[in-house]
């Protein structure tokens, strides 16, 4: 009951709950495309290299949030071009960007004050300190994501489903592929505040992956993934509150356990048939 009482009276917990839900909207929309395109590794590269931009901004006392957006978009474009133009070395190159981005970030953060506290909150998130202003920014980013997905739904589906057919039909597949990765970049930044950049990939992919086990269209997958994401962030927040566990890690554990149970359930059903 302590959680509910605090929720009624304290704005930090209300903000945290709302932040989790706003993050879930972005992760459900974008995560569905990440799952069907199997680009979790590329999303991981984008997420981790963001630390480079955040570290530099932190060292220079600029806003790390803006830096996160810029570096995420930059990483998305670089990784996208590697994927499109340099296929043979794709995984090595993405792994290099992943690690180099983090290395840059750690060097700059180590030369700044408050090394541990801030590094930990970049890496693992801190949902309990989300401000009202950040909520508005998250809402704005959700709206951008939603508008993009609605406007270009058919192109995004087409490049995910059969990129050669889409090319012959005159869809600008490379452009939409890069835009999809930019969408991943925006969503990653949206999620960093909630679960941190190390755990981002789990929240981006697990709700959508669970949703995929039960529905037959991308649209339904998105809707269910948003609901599941909201459920995971809210229940993770609740479970972590009283024992004073890290909220981000608890959220990911909840999502991971549900994914495991759902997969077991699905394979059981399949083997009974």
């Amino acid at each position: 009951m302590d959680f509910l009482n605090t929720l009624m009276t304290q704005s930090f917990l209300q903000n945290a709950l709302l932040g989790g839900i706003l993050a879930s909207i972005g992760c459900g929309l974008t995560g569905s495309f990440v799952v069907v395109n199997r680009i979790g590794y590329m999303a991981g590269g984008i997420a981790h290299s963001v630390l480079g931009g955040m570290g530099i901004a932190y060292y220079l006392s600029y806003d790390p949030f803006i830096a996160a957006i810029i570096s995420a978009l930059l990483a998305a474009v670089i990784i996208g071009i590697i994927k499109l133009k340099w296929r043979h070395q794709e995984d090595t190159a993405i792994g290099a960007i992943w690690a180099v981005g983090m290395a840059i970030g750690i060097i700059f953060i180590s030369k700044s004050d408050g090394y541990n506290v801030n590094l930990m909150s970049f890496l693992f998130g801190n949902i309990l300190i989300i401000s009202r202003e950040q909520l508005y920014i998250m809402l704005f980013m959700d709206l951008i994501t939603l508008a993009f997905v609605v406007l270009f739904y058919k192109q995004l589906i087409a490049i995910s489903f059969d990129i050669e057919f889409a090319t012959v039909r005159g869809v600008h597949v490379n452009l939409f592929y890069l835009l999809l990765l930019c969408l991943v970049a925006i969503t990653v930044v949206l999620l960093i505040q909630v679960v941190g950049l190390i755990l981002v990939i789990a929240l981006l992919t697990l709700p959508a992956a669970i949703a995929r086990q039960y529905v037959q269209s991308i649209g339904a997958m998105m809707l269910l993934a948003v609901l599941l994401g909201s459920l995971f962030t809210s229940s993770g927040l609740y479970l972590s509150y009283e024992p004073d566990l890290p909220a981000g890690a608890t959220i990911i554990l909840v999502a991971g356990v549900v994914y495991l149970l759902s997969s077991l359930f699905k394979s059981l059903v399949a083997s009974r048939r």
Binding site: V36, I157, F161, D162, A166, R169, A220, M221
Partner: peptide, 10 residues
Amino acid sequence: PISVLDTVLQ
């Protein structure tokens, strides 16, 4: 995850 109709519409 896509229906037959949505595939044909492509």
